[in-house]
Nucleic acid binder design. Sequence first.
DNA 1: GAGCTCACG
DNA 2: ACGTACGTGAGCTCC
Length: 886
Amino acid sequence: MERGLTMNEKQFQDQKIVLIDGHSILNRAFYGLPDLTNAEGLHTNAVYGFLNILFKILEEEKPEYLTVAFDVHAPTFRHEMYKEYKGTRKPMAEELRQQVPVIKEVLKAMGIRLIEQAGLEADDLIGTLSRRCEEAGMQVVVLSGDRDFLQLATKKVKIRIPKTKQGRTEVEDYLEEDVKEKYQVTPKEFIDVKALMGDTSDNIPGVPSIGEKTATKIIVEYQTIENAYAHVDELKPPRAAKALKEHYDLAQMSKELATINVHADFPYEVEEGKIGELFTAEAYEWFQKLEFKNLLGKFEIQAPASEIEDSFVTVTDPAGMDAVFEKAAGAGTVGVVLERNTENVLPLFAAMSGISGAVLAFSADGKDEIVSIQTGNGISADALMERLSALTESRAQISMFDVKKELPHVRTCRRENFFDVHVAAYLLNPLKSSYEPDDVAREYLDLTIDAKLSEEKKSCYEAYTMYRAADVLREKLKEYGMEALFDEIEMPLVFALFDMEQAGVKVEAEALKEYGQDLGVQIERLEAEIFELAGETFNINSPKQLGVVLFEHLELPHGKKTKTGYSTAADILEKLAPDYPVVSKILEYRQLAKLKSTYADGLVNFISEDHRIHGTFNQTVTATGRISSTEPNLQNIPIRMELGRQIRKVFVPEEGFVFVDADYSQIELRILAHCSDDEALIQAYKEAKDIHRTTASQVFHTPFDEVTDLQRRNAKAVNFGIVYGISSFGLSQDLSITRKEAAEYIDRYFETYPGVKAYLDGEVAFAKEHGYVTTIFGRRRPVPELSSSNFMQRSFGERVAMNSPIQGAAADIMKIAMIRVNQRLREEQMESRIVIQVHDELLVEARIDEVEKVKEILKEEMEHAADLKVPLIADMSVGSNWYEAK
DNA sequence: GAGCTCACG
DNA sequence: ACGTACGTGAGCTCC
């Protein structure tokens, strides 16, 4: 029979081939890795895991040949899981299904031989290939997650089974001997064992009442099912004898099913499996698209890179520097990277340290120029920054990465002239965790900046990236309808945030320390009381130890459990507090411990020499478009509980100043009214009604004036729930009512405001169709979770689709207000300044004689930041500290 | 470094 | 049946 193998030739002698069970490995990878998606929302975890296993095996085995086998599913089976799941007929997860064609394309791009054959399962393809190759004198390695393949193991055929243990991939190896060692039977006998015991997932019935133990025992003694049947009366235990006698036909059929065909007939030339260059340009494109960044390192640096390096120039003399700046001033876009003097500087101070050079990248006379200007030898850092400041006044667009961070080095600048690559990349996909220059280069320019390059070269590549990316990102922003959002909101905001960070906020260190000491005393007292009541000492800060003490030693009734133990979260403990004094003490302890560590002690560490805290307000972090605050977080200073609220007394204005605090009234619900166009909701806001009372009145069919406090409170919770993407479960948790009751509230809410219902449904439908949602200002949030087959994930996606346009629009509006308020304070030469933003609130440190003007500006600019179908309302308050001003 | 808890809007 | 409200950041414990 022609098998396509030239067995009489010795060309394959002692060569090695790796045979991979494609679906099995893909499946292993899929379930072993968290759900990863690329920017387009394509699920990539299985492909990523597959490639990692593949590279690992190739590295270990160093084979000359490689072939990956796939099943061809008949149409009726198309939606079913491969093998392992056929038995239970579960549909293949959608996220996995969409990755099957992807891995095939990726493998093809790497020039890897794929094989699939209608009517033959991958098992049979691999079984036959392993036999043919072995006969040709080759070493064979079979890679699969499926133990069935153990029957193929010989001295020259090694079965490798990857397992994921706590995120790490370990591979179990089986040559013939290893199978014997582990299962006490030869690979051939392994078939009979399996046939006797059966395998539900594989649709192998097996013999009833015979399990793994008995099956192994029988085959160890009799080697085959046929031989065991011949001695059936001697079989022990008698139960097994009886079963085999009655079900011998079943056993034979099972054996047939369990046997992998090693003599299948299909065309295949071993030579086709020869491994060539895996890291082709085509493969590179796929890896880019799938965003497998750490795999890109396997590729040689791309050809364009070396061409770019031809344009690198270094300048160290003043005349050369002037010439470069002059040329750059005439360019359209200039990419700029500042180089810091990091030697002998602690990392913490790196940002403030001196500038050692700058790289400018631009196009002049039709060719790229990437010029590195180094300080020293006649060029001072001051002179360099002076030229840079002047450059910002030219017509050129200055493209930089994280402008807010670089701005302290630029003495003066025309704020209109910047393009922030960091911010643009964030707008295009706010779900990423990093937007570093090399990420941008890779994603948008197909350019790899090798991490191993020298700092100087890296800076050049980065400057080049800034220069090139500006146009590419702008095109993409245009395509997404986000150019106005970028130009009119995000870029101007960079400077508003910069001013706010520079201003900082004054904090009274001494008062804060005293507050912390008071807390310390109280905490010690509580700690002693808790140990007394508990009858033992332990670490109250350890949820684990606390759980053991409360729920095992003291035997308190426990609520839900977490993965690692009993939940000791506040909502659980609060239910126990009335009955157990020790629990109330613990809650109190927790509260005080939090206040001391995070706020009292925590904030003290951030007070600078100028007695102020200069936190960072991040513009590229949140999924919805909000700003976030770090080092320290100034957006979660306590307010809800009186004791914590006291902390706000240490936030004070400068001598001669007061605080003016302005916050939007229910901005998210107003946006909901606007977006949903719901008549009743709009009417309520137009009439300036108490919205929660109005909702309560309508939902509970109660006259407006007769609404009880409880009804109003419930209605308020429903209003909040709507904004979060309502679910009956969530609402029931919040109100401590049953899910059924919560569902009724929601139903009645939607009856009251049918426009809201239609709007929210519409957002979910839009997201399902397009994979993202947008705010009224065009801000986009992808929602990859919506294509998940996991109920929880999908539900989350639905809530995100409902919430993001609202939360995002609120963020947009506040950003506009901040820009305009900041602008006016500057234009009108006032000394008052915004010092903190907390999502719907602005805290302004106002010079006493400017207070009225500040209030006017805040009210005006906040209330008119957007023109909605309902009024926007900002409430003002003045005080001599943040506690008073709220 | 992950998981838990809790501070805010 | 699944097991949640949306968006953050920080401190603590424990592996």
